[in-house]
């Protein structure tokens, strides 16, 4: 076995076949469920949304753990800290942008009725 592999084995940053097969099977399962759920219209739109987003998050965790072997490195676990920081930024960017832009759309875009009312009240038209 070469040096790199020995070093990896010593610090546990690798996976045996079991790790990959487990990850693979779980991922297939979750993917299939998500696609079928959407195609079959079994739940309401909102219900389906919640389930598929949850499954996506779970599948990402599964792949991070079983394929990318996250969590198996020795301390200090910089990989995890950096991932968590990145995750925080991701949530803030996506969530923050959605909140801000939705708010802006609400206040900055007028419906035709609002335009008519404004023109009538303020411009005398």
């Amino acid at each position: 076995m070469n040096e790199q592999a020995e070093g990896l084995k010593r610090r546990g940053m690798h996976g045996g076949i079991g790790s990959y097969v487990t990850g693979f099977v779980l991922s297939i399962g979750m993917t299939v469920v998500s696609f079928i759920l959407v195609a079959s219209h079994l739940l309401t739109s909102l219900g389906t949304l919640v389930v598929i987003v949850t499954l996506a998050a779970l599948q990402i965790i599964v792949q991070l753990f079983f394929f990318l072997h996250l969590g198996r490195e020795s301390k200090p676990r910089w990989n995890i800290y950096i991932l968590l920081f990145a995750l925080m930024v991701v949530v803030i960017i996506i969530g923050g942008s959605l909140w801000i832009m939705h708010n802006l759309d609400r206040y900055m875009i007028m419906t035709p009725e609002q335009i008519n009312t404004y023109m009538h009240n303020n411009e005398g038209l």
């Binding site: 592999a5 045996g16 990959y20 693979f24 993917t31 394929f67």
Partner: peptide, 29 residues
């Protein structure tokens, strides 16, 4: 086209799995 995307998804997932198999083989030299 959801069925089409499902096929794409499966292809990529399998390729991720086969990468893992390649790494296992590499560790065995």
């Amino acid at each position: 086209d959801l069925p089409y995307i499902f096929v794409e998804t499966m292809i990529l997932l399998v390729s991720s799995f086969t990468t893992g198999l390649a790494m296992i083989a590499a560790r065995k030299n």
